[in-house]
């Protein structure tokens, strides 16, 4: 499974650095930059991730507690509940600053910056 290998690679890197790999877009077939955000100990890591337009961001929950990826101001589609080891992805097609939080634990906040 493709995402398993991506996640395994991400865990080998320092937490503050997003893993950066390439993956095929299911819709266009063009390669898209893929970035990883880890959810661990009630934090999104990294708390701010800077990506180019068209990047795909995948969040993976490593906690025992469920979390969500919920856009502040409905700027992108919210995730469902992510149980332990669940992942969720969103593609960012427009430049901007996308704040998000966990709707279950709203003190967990982070940002995706698309340029």
């Amino acid at each position: 499974m493709r995402w398993r290998s991506t996640i395994a690679a991400a865990t080998l890197l320092p937490l503050a650095i997003a893993a950066q790999t390439t993956a095929s877009s299911a819709t266009s077939g063009k390669p898209a930059m893929t970035y990883q955000v880890d959810i661990r100990q009630f934090h999104f890591r990294p708390a701010q991730l800077v990506v180019p337009v068209g990047a795909k961001v995948t969040w993976t929950n490593h906690d025992e507690e469920p979390h969500t990826v919920t856009s502040a101001g409905a700027q992108f589609k919210d995730s469902p509940a992510l149980d332990t080891d669940d992942s969720y992805s969103a593609v960012f097609t427009k430049p901007g600053t996308y704040a998000y939080f966990c709707s279950v634990h709203p003190f967990m906040t982070a940002t995706i910056v698309v340029h």
Binding site: T70, P106, F107
Partner: peptide, 14 residues
């Protein structure tokens, strides 16, 4: 009185 304090939570809020 039964109150609901878990809806419409805002990022960074309680």
């Amino acid at each position: 009185v039964a109150l609901v304090n878990v809806r419409h939570l805002q990022g960074g809020g309680l």
